[in-house]
Design a binder for these strands. Structure first.
Length: 460
DNA sequence: ATGAAGGGGA
């Protein structure tokens, strides 16, 4: 009788712990457990699994591990859910090898992975840009005759989109529907997001219609996704309309929509308006996470208020917010805008020395700053010393050279890009060709044009 | 008790 009572009470405690964890109230959850122990309740595997998931989500993977140790010390064996939570945690913090180690560890402990484990592993591979490996996991699931979940398909569709296979994702979606799969709201959100990201805004809009027609009610995520899609395709009025609708529906309960609008405004140089939206975020008491912080930080940097920006950063870091590579890139851009190129370069060098991943966007930003202020030799020097470059790097230099009317150098670089299969914007090619013509280098211009044509024929 | 969707940098 007493045992049954204890079991019931432990279950009650677990419900309590779960709801506190969900609300990010980890200290309170711990207090509930301590109180439980005081009145004779033993935390069980569910209690610890709840804690591990929450610590992984809100604190970090190491915090999750320390709960795992506490669990083992208490004599409770981890189960498949424990490992699933840890693997999901490792995925969240981009630790691929840790994910794989945990999976192996689970097998070694003779804990049978379930569909959740496979889903998590698949998602992990997709996140790391390894769609082939992810697909192998999926085939493994089919081979082992484990019954799949709708989440399995959602992860597949999302992973395919994020790895540049939106066409395959579409085919999968259609074929699943033919086989009786009923897409959920999240499935549509994934598709709309993926299609928009891969430059297929029109198809994304069709799915928005299909979503509504099949009886789903778009949520805040649907709205922010579609709004960003509008801004991306320069349909600003349409985007603002969506924002207004979100407000009316009560969907602006967090900072997401505000950040979407504000960053678009910052990108298009409408700083005063951005200020209004971000002012609302600050005064209305949303807790600033790193993303909304970076948006506000970007506002100060774009306004040239570097002192205020720095003060903001200092306060945020004292409050426990950890800056990231976005913060750093924004700061580099701010320094360049205010002419502090030396400081910018020192910051960039310090980053690579201290073993951080080299921040390509920050370097590109630096190059952009140098080009805009006509320091082409400096820019070229930096360009040559960079060991990773992308199409933005090349575009920036090509545009910079054109601006300095060094069209021959620009065309030489452009041609080397084309030879290397680098995607360069049509408008940038145009600038080079028009520039060559404008200084009477018509022969050169024609040569570049024909090489571009040739590349097109070869590539497509 | 676990997995999938929205916002930030050139």
């Amino acid at each position: 009788m007493q045992r049954i009572k204890d079991k019931l009470s432990t279950r009650l405690m677990n419900v309590c712990v779960a709801s506190l964890c969900k609300a990010k109230q980890l200290e309170k959850a711990e207090i509930v457990i301590v109180d439980g122990i005081r009145i004779g309740l033993q935390p069980d595997v569910v209690t610890y699994n709840t804690l591990i998931a929450a610590y992984c989500r809100f604190v970090g993977i190491d915090a999750g591990y320390s709960i795992l140790n506490r669990m083992k010390d208490a004599g409770i064996n981890p189960d498949v859910i424990t490992y699933n939570a840890l693997i999901a945690g490792a995925t969240r913090y981009s630790l691929l090898s840790k994910c794989l180690d945990l999976f192996d560890e689970m097998l070694e402990m003779r804990i049978l992975p379930d569909i959740w484990s496979y889903n998590t592993l698949m998602n992990c591979f997709f996140k790391f840009g390894k769609p082939d490996e992810a697909y192998r996991v999926f085939q493994d699931v089919l081979l082992k005759d484990i019954s799949v979940h709708s989440a399995t398909f959602n992860i597949l569709i999302n992973g395919l989109c994020m790895n540049g296979y939106s066409e395959n994702a579409l085919m999968l979606f259609r074929s699943l529907k033919r086989h009786g799969f009923i897409p959920q709201l999240v499935t549509y959100n994934i598709l709309i997001h993926g299609l928009c990201k891969s430059g297929r805004g029109n198809v994304a809009r069709e799915f928005l219609n299909e979503l509504v027609e099949s009886g789903h009610i778009p949520n805040a995520i649907t709205y922010t996704t579609v709004m960003k899609c509008c801004f991306r395709y320069r349909q600003f009025e349409e985007g603002f309309k969506i924002f207004a609708e979100m407000r009316n529906k009560g969907y602006t309960y967090d900072a997401f929509a505000y950040c979407t609008v504000a960053s678009m405004l910052l990108k298009t140089g409408r700083i005063t308006e951005a200020n209004e939206y971000l002012g609302y975020i600050i005064t209305s008491g949303f807790t600033l996470d790193i993303v909304s912080f970076n948006t506000v930080f970007n506002l100060y940097c774009k306004e040239g208020q570097l002192d205020n920006a720095y003060k903001l950063l200092y306060e945020a870091e004292n409050g426990g917010l950890e800056s990231d590579k976005f913060t750093h890139a924004i700061w580099i851009d701010g320094l360049c805008r205010t002419g502090n190129f030396q400081e910018a370069q020192q910051q960039l060098n310090r980053m690579s020395v201290t073993g951080f991943d080299s921040n390509l966007v920050a370097w590109n930003s630096f190059l952009n700053g140098l080009c805009k202020t006509g320091q082409l030799d400096y820019a070229t020097h930096i360009f040559e010393s960079m060991d990773t470059k992308d199409s933005v790097t090349y575009s920036t230099i090509v545009r910079g050279l054109c601006q300095a009317r060094r069209f021959r150098a620009a065309s030489k670089l452009l041609l080397s890009c084309i030879r290397g299969g680098m995607r360069i914007l049509k408008s940038d090619k145009r600038i080079v060709i028009d520039g060559l013509r404008s200084c009477g280098l018509t022969h050169e211009a024609r040569k570049v044009q024909s090489k571009i044509q040739m590349a097109k024929l070869l590539h497509y």
